[in-house]
Design a protein around this nucleic acid. Structure first.
Lengths: 212, 212
DNA sequence: ACTTGACCAGATTTCAAATTTGGTCATACA
DNA sequence: TGTATGACCAAATTTGAAATCTGGTCAAGT
């Protein structure tokens, strides 16, 4: 059954490439099939609709970013701290052309797919974020004068603010510098001093894996 | 010369009302003239183009919000502190249907007018913000381990993040609560303890007046 | 058993005619 | 004499039908 999975991967690879180069609207199933060296019908053996195919590309892209986060977490448990997490995730998103394009080009690249429930569940994303915040709260690693739901809301606002800001960023700073700035901001806004242990990193990694 | 100004005000009032009700694209100069009870040509005695007229509406709306800020500053000098300023400005924007619509409906309400230079100069906005941050830095009212340009960038990212978040906010919190949350976030992220005096409030008020 | 591309209906694009609208200015009016 | 107006025009926008394209199916081929 491996060849089947291989083909699926190949199709997703090809689709991601076309998506990055031409944008959501301009890529047809025929294009994808042609570039993958197979017939159009074969694509439909894997996904029922065009939306599902591109949704799968999107989901895989997110999964890859999340996988990066898990890897970073394993390499350095301190990434479990909210401010480190923020910077790392910021970079993980901007590093991937498709996600970056989604942020910058917005509608251009993904059309109405973003926001729709195909391929990726935004609700689950929020749920995981909330759980993560709970974990941090229990360990006393975030400020205690705000409830976890408030912290989650504020954190996401800040995070998305920095992401959106990438749209009109000049050349006065590097992306790494902006990631550090986000980290510093989040740290003083929400974090409490504390040493992260491997158990915490594991717990967060498991949470994140729920998104893959 | 007062009747002329009165008529200008009337036209702007009527245009703002139509804009809020039908959106940028659907409002014609004839509509505006008709609703103001004057001929179309008369509108062109005040503004050279349609874009300039709506630009003036936009500018007046911003000016009103800024005037609110100046008033708040006079009433309570503590509003000069970055976190108080943030909450107050947040509310001043969301309180005005046209600006609120710009945030929420985005393209729907303002079309390509936003981002264009007509009626309002985004560059000046940034300059004023930078000056404001300099003033705070000189008085030691913001953290010292970040340079003012970094502080400005981070603050604007956070502020806009909270504004954007209004788009998909649920009913679990009130707008005032979200303003307080923004305030708290900004305070711990960027502020340093300090007592604001009337001189500071004046200075900031003067800066802001440069936007009117 | 698996793959394919011809095929079809519905969606999208084209393109020209019809309509609307921004902007002007000769005329009316105070 | 100075101000206001709406008929007027060119340009932009909308409409609508024909032409084209594309998502999705499935009978035929391997």
């Amino acid at each position: 059954m491996t060849p089947r999975t291989d083909r699926e991967t190949k199709i997703l690879d090809v689709a991601a490439d076309l998506l990055v180069r031409h944008g959501y609207r301009r890529v047809t199933i025929d294009d994808v099939a042609g570039a993958a060296g197979i017939g159009k019908g074969t694509v439909y053996l894997h996904w029922k609709t065009r939306e599902e195919l591109f949704g799968a590309v999107f989901a895989r892209e997110i999964s890859a970013a999340v996988a990066d986060m898990v890897a970073a977490l394993r390499a350095d448990p301190a990434v479990a701290l909210l401010h480190r997490f923020a910077a790392e995730f910021f970079l993980a998103i901007l590093r991937r052309p498709l996600l970056y394009g989604m942020v910058i080009g917005d509608v251009q690249m993904w059309g109405k797919l973003v926001g729709s429930e195909v391929g990726y569940d935004g609700g689950r994303h929020n749920a995981v974020m909330a759980s993560y915040m709970d974990v941090l709260a229990v360990r006393g690693l975030v400020r205690k004068d705000l409830a976890p739901p408030e912290l989650t809301y504020a954190f996401q606002s800040v995070f998305e603010g920095f992401i959106y800001a990438e749209r009109e960023v000049g050349s006065e700073s590097t992306r790494d510098e902006r990631a550090r700035l986000l980290s510093t901001t989040v740290e003083s806004a929400f974090s409490r001093p504390g040493i992260p242990d491997d158990a915490l990193a594991d717990e967060v990694a498991v949470l994140l894996s729920g998104l893959v």
